[in-house]
């Protein structure tokens, strides 16, 4: 059942054969086509649950970031992973908040952690970090021991 669906998706997206990684259908798309691809996945194939968005940093690669989405179909019980690449100079993808409400908070997290910009999402305030946090901590060039300027040092309080 899942295999037939995967074949149909592969056909619809013009792939020769579906790429399956540990049971998840993997789809690659250009950043410009992201929204259109997601809309098709949602409307034609029933991927109605937005599971997750995150990024993967490859500092030695051009373009540097993978933005990785996971969707789930509550009808067919399959998952699809959608990957797109964005460069460090312009890490922008379009937002999906108008398609999935749950994208809002996860885009905020991805924005603060990796500096990915979600064009059209007007609420990219920090979610897990705080106002004034400098840098994007999950980027590979952010040292784990990095200190942040806003927190007062303890020696101020004898």
């Amino acid at each position: 059942m899942a295999a037939a669906l995967f074949d149909r998706i592969a056909q619809a997206f013009g792939l020769e054969a579906p790429e399956i990684a540990h049971g998840v259908f993997v789809l690659h798309t250009e950043a410009a086509n992201l929204e259109a691809s997601v809309r098709r996945l949602k409307d034609e194939f029933g991927f109605d649950l937005f599971l997750d968005v995150t990024a993967v940093d490859w500092p030695d690669r051009q373009p540097r970031f993978d933005v990785v989405y996971h969707f789930y179909s509550t009808r067919d019980f399959v998952r699809v992973r959608l990957k797109t690449r964005v460069p460090e100079s312009d890490p922008t993808v379009s937002t999906l908040v108008h398609l999935y409400g749950s994208a809002a908070c996860m885009e905020r997290e991805c924005h603060e952690m990796y500096g990915i910009h979600f064009a059209g999402n007007n609420d990219l305030r920090p979610m897990l970090l705080y106002e004034g946090f400098v840098g994007h901590p999950l980027r590979k060039d952010y040292p784990k021991t990095q200190e942040q300027p806003l927190v007062a040092y303890r020696e101020n309080h004898p």
Binding site: R125, Y130, E131, G132, L150, V151, A152, N156, H157
Partner: peptide, 9 residues
């Protein structure tokens, strides 16, 4: 003690 900004907006 230094005045810390509100951590949330």
């Amino acid at each position: 003690s230094p005045v810390l900004p509100n951590p949330i907006r």
